[in-house]
């Protein structure tokens, strides 16, 4: 296997493994927010804003993985030269 195929495999593994954590975390966050909104529908706007900000925070981990895998795929790393 040359460097390129290793990089492709690693890129796939990066995004696959790296998405597990944020996916679970986002699911828990949304579930908790829905629970809270069901209890207190009055504060729905505050809750959903906080939810969106929190989801963005959680999501950035997955996006770091995406960027790493893209760097691997499109050869911006010095290994690929």
């Amino acid at each position: 296997m040359d460097m390129k195929s290793i990089a492709i495999i690693v890129a796939g593994a990066t995004i696959a493994i790296g998405s597990i954590g944020p996916a679970l975390a986002q699911g828990r966050a949304v579930a908790a927010a829905l629970d809270a909104i069901a209890r207190q529908p009055d504060s729905a706007s505050l809750l959903s804003r906080t939810l969106f900000v929190g989801l963005a925070m959680v999501e950035s981990t997955a996006i770091y993985c995406l960027v790493v895998s893209l760097i691997l795929l499109f050869g911006a790393s010095p290994l690929m030269k």
């Binding site: 963005a56 925070m57 999501e59 950035s60 996006i63 770091y64 995406l66 960027v67 893209l70």
Partner: peptide, 12 residues
């Protein structure tokens, strides 16, 4: 994170 989040989402 702010810049990479927007870029990652739109580009992907």
């Amino acid at each position: 994170a702010l810049s990479v989040r927007l870029f990652g989402n739109m580009m992907s």
